[in-house]
Amino acid sequence: MTMTPSPESVTHLEGPLTSDRVRTLRAGDSIRFSGTVFTARDAAHRRLVESMDKGEPLPFPIRDSVIYFAGPAPAKPGQPIGSIGPTSSYRMDAYSPRLLDAGLTGMIGKGTRSPEVIEAMRRNGAVYFAAIGGAAALIARCVRRCDLICYEDLGPEAIRRLEVVEMPLVVAIDCEGGNLYEQGPAAYLESLSDKGLGGDPA
């Protein structure tokens, strides 16, 4: 079914994700990630940070781990999980620096991040990956196992531990602040002006 138009070089990456490994990744790199990721989105992030404020232990080991900003559709019978694509990451910006300072090394989502998050990524040697927003049925096929680990009352927003195999990702923002959301559009517009086609430089 895949109709890849042109070859791309792919980096295979396995969890746990150490900062040493993170430092080799650059914005724009295509990744296939295998290992454990924890789903958490708005309401779960709020609870995680509230736990930290109270000095309580977090419900999963955060050091060298990867959080996937996502809330799945329910699994059909016989499937480990329903469709599961990324949600917009900026809504987690208020919480991510705390988790990064606690040892989180990877985040998967889509869209822009705040300067505070990018600074916390630099400080801690962490990376922000983008998954393709809306490609949720395709991404679900990479999930081999799904276990609900806490906050069941939040429904789709509960924290789940996923075992993923060859999950397709792109490095959106690397630990030196390289940012595909800035570099990608700029390179495209530059290619137009190289061809004398103009385009909006803003």
Binding site: A73, S83, G85, G134, A135, A136, A137
Partner: peptide, 17 residues
């Protein structure tokens, strides 16, 4: 396009949202 084809074939949601 691959995602659209898969969701249609397996009758699963195109997007989790």
């Amino acid at each position: 396009e691959d995602n659209i084809a898969l969701a249609t074939r397996d009758r699963v949601p195109l997007c989790q949202d």
